[in-house]
Design a protein around this nucleic acid. Structure first.
Length: 187
DNA sequence: TGGGCGATTCGCT
DNA sequence: GCGAATCGCCCAC
């Protein structure tokens, strides 16, 4: 089932685990979401924690849109804006299991190893061809295509990766046992 | 107005 | 394991 904007108009803590097993395509390239992290404006690791700036403005807008920011001056990271307008919460998409548009993704990533295509937030945006041009784009319209998961899947949770604030919050979610995680979950 | 630092990745040791 | 690449934001001067 195709995900509409209303899917995202709920608590980020409901949406994030439900995105595991969903399918994300961009211009026909992408795959199954196997790892995400939730960020909420009330918690200091979120970009929106300190209030609205030109960079994070999309986070303060309505849910169901893409927030894309530059990480370490090099990579692009893709988020889905959640909750009601002004809540400024989002889900960071961290890893996909590649499924569609494999040739294009291998070309953009310059690797033959399928596990290096989309296993990391910077890697998956490069594989799909997502940049700041997509900041503020609707998620329920081309070139984005999002489908809800079709069957049951086992979701595991743990602490988020690569942050220095609010490190203890277990807001990283993953597909149990997936070989395409950016890092394994602690057993 | 400038220096430090971050939701990262890659290559070399 | 460690450090470099590199851009925008933020806080201290």
């Amino acid at each position: 089932m195709r995900l509409r904007k209303s899917f995202f108009n709920r608590s980020v803590h409901e949406v994030a685990p439900e995105l595991i097993g969903a399918t994300l395509l961009f211009n026909g390239a992408g795959g199954v979401i196997v790892e995400v992290e939730a960020y909420h404006h009330t918690e200091p690791a979120a970009h929106s924690y300190g209030g609205q700036t030109p960079r994070n403005a999309v986070m303060f807008g309505p849910p169901g849109y893409a927030y894309v920011y530059r990480s370490y001056g090099i990579h692009w990271c893709l988020n889905f804006v959640c909750e009601a307008k002004g809540s400024a919460s989002a889900v960071l998409i961290r890893a996909l299991e590649p499924a569609e548009g494999l040739a294009a993704m291998h070309r953009r990533r310059r690797t033959a190893d399928p596990r290096l295509l989309c296993s990391g937030p910077g890697r998956l945006t490069e594989a799909l061809g997502i940049t700041h041009a997509q900041n503020g784009c609707a998620l329920d319209a081309p070139p984005f295509e999002l489908h809800g998961r079709t069957g049951e899947c086992e979701v595991v949770a743990g602490p988020r990766i690569g942050i220095t604030k609010a490190v203890e919050l277990p807001w990283r979610y993953g597909l149990k046992g997936s070989r395409f995680l950016s890092k394994p979950f602690k057993a």
